[in-house]
Amino acid sequence: MTNNEYAGKIAFITGGGRGFGKAFGTALAERGAHVVLADIDDEVAESAAAELIARGAGATGVACDVADEAAVAAALDAVAEQHGGLDILVNNAGLHAAFNRPFTELGVGNVRRVFDVNVLGTVICTLAAHPLMAGREGAAIVNISSSAAYANRTVYGVSKLAVRGLTVAFAREFAADGIRVNAIAPGLIFTDAVREQLSPAEAKRVLGEQILEQEGREEDIVEALLYLLSPKASFVTGETLRVTGGFALSV
């Protein structure tokens, strides 16, 4: 445990069993929050939670398909019963690389699938969490968009553009309840999984489109999350913070 900045806070993180979601959960748990790691793969979620518990942190792993309204309701009902409310929601779960292709290549069935998870999943989780968060001091939601949302060339990119729109819409709707809503748009982040999947030529191409000549790190996204959730961002809502090294920069 590094500090108690989030002591007493309850955080629900979708896609929490691996990748960014696991990193977000670890950072919040290390700072005193009890984190609920929700993942479509229950074994992965429970394993990630067990790692945190072994380190003395508060964590729960739950099975949850964000596109399944009943499953989300059940998971958040359990949070309400066990903890009395919710302070932090991180809408991180999403479908990624395989859907970063044109609409004509994917077809309607795959388009529907990616929108069900990336867009409707964000809506379902946010609406279910809203009554548990309303009126709680410092309540905040962070959605995970993407730098692809600024290019809009693929099904994935358009779904993440929709996440940016949802961020603004929910920020307006929830302001009266004291809930801030923001998003992060990561660029290419060189995790171990990305290094395995990305060809050297593709990595070079993306780095060449950045302004900063350095590789994005998972810690860069974690730090952005911690800022948006913190009192330092108390006057920030409805925004999407790009963490991209200057990729796809525009005004």
Score class of each variant (00 low, 15 high):
residue 196 E to Y: 00
residue 196 E to P: 00
residue 15 G to F: 04
residue 225 L to D: 12
residue 107 G to W: 02
residue 162 A to S: 13
residue 113 R to A: 15
residue 63 A to P: 02
residue 212 L to E: 13
residue 54 A to V: 03
residue 37 L to Q: 05
residue 38 A to E: 09
residue 153 R to F: 05
residue 62 V to D: 03
residue 176 A to V: 08
residue 33 A to D: 04
residue 152 N to L: 15
residue 204 K to F: 02
residue 91 N to G: 09
residue 19 G to Y: 01
residue 102 P to G: 09
residue 103 F to D: 08
residue 155 V to T: 10
residue 228 L to E: 11
residue 46 E to N: 12
residue 120 L to W: 10
residue 83 H to L: 05
residue 42 D to K: 13
residue 137 E to F: 04
residue 39 D to C: 05
residue 136 R to L: 09
residue 47 S to A: 15
residue 25 G to N: 08
residue 59 A to I: 12
residue 128 A to L: 05
residue 235 F to G: 00
residue 190 F to A: 08
residue 72 V to W: 10
residue 98 A to T: 07
residue 100 N to R: 10
residue 137 E to H: 12
residue 128 A to K: 03
residue 1 M to W: 04
residue 107 G to P: 07
residue 1 M to T: 13
residue 60 T to E: 13
residue 156 Y to S: 06
residue 79 V to H: 02
residue 71 A to W: 05
residue 58 G to I: 04
residue 76 L to Q: 12
residue 127 L to Y: 06
residue 67 A to K: 01
residue 202 E to W: 02
residue 150 Y to L: 13
residue 45 A to W: 02
residue 238 G to L: 03
residue 149 A to Y: 04
residue 100 N to Q: 11
residue 212 L to Q: 13
residue 121 G to E: 01
residue 101 R to D: 08
residue 248 A to N: 05
residue 235 F to Y: 14
residue 23 A to L: 12
residue 38 A to L: 10
residue 135 G to I: 06
residue 161 L to W: 01
residue 138 G to T: 04
residue 164 R to G: 03
residue 80 A to E: 13
residue 185 A to M: 01
residue 187 G to T: 06
residue 145 S to V: 07
residue 60 T to H: 09
residue 24 F to Q: 02
residue 127 L to P: 00
residue 65 D to C: 10
residue 130 H to A: 14
residue 157 G to N: 01
residue 123 V to E: 05
residue 34 H to K: 14
residue 148 A to E: 12
residue 154 T to S: 15
residue 5 E to W: 00
residue 112 R to V: 09
residue 191 T to W: 01
residue 168 V to H: 10
residue 231 P to K: 06
residue 250 S to T: 15
residue 143 N to H: 09
residue 62 V to M: 13
residue 50 A to C: 03
residue 178 G to F: 09
residue 132 L to T: 04
residue 208 G to A: 15
residue 80 A to I: 00
residue 135 G to W: 05
residue 156 Y to P: 01
residue 105 E to G: 10
residue 220 D to M: 05
residue 168 V to T: 12
residue 177 D to G: 09
residue 185 A to G: 02
residue 148 A to R: 01
residue 1 M to V: 12
residue 49 A to I: 07
residue 140 A to R: 09
residue 146 S to G: 08
residue 165 G to I: 03
residue 130 H to E: 13
residue 112 R to K: 12
residue 76 L to R: 01
residue 200 P to R: 12
residue 80 A to W: 00
residue 186 P to L: 04
residue 225 L to F: 13
residue 197 Q to F: 10
residue 76 L to W: 03
residue 41 D to L: 10
residue 92 N to T: 11
residue 170 F to M: 15
residue 206 V to Y: 07
residue 81 E to D: 14
residue 40 I to G: 14
residue 45 A to C: 11
residue 42 D to P: 08
residue 250 S to V: 12
residue 83 H to T: 04
residue 63 A to C: 09
residue 15 G to L: 07
residue 104 T to I: 10
residue 116 D to G: 03
residue 240 T to S: 11
residue 213 E to I: 03
residue 6 Y to L: 10
residue 238 G to Q: 05
residue 47 S to Q: 13
residue 85 G to C: 14
residue 123 V to S: 06
residue 154 T to A: 06
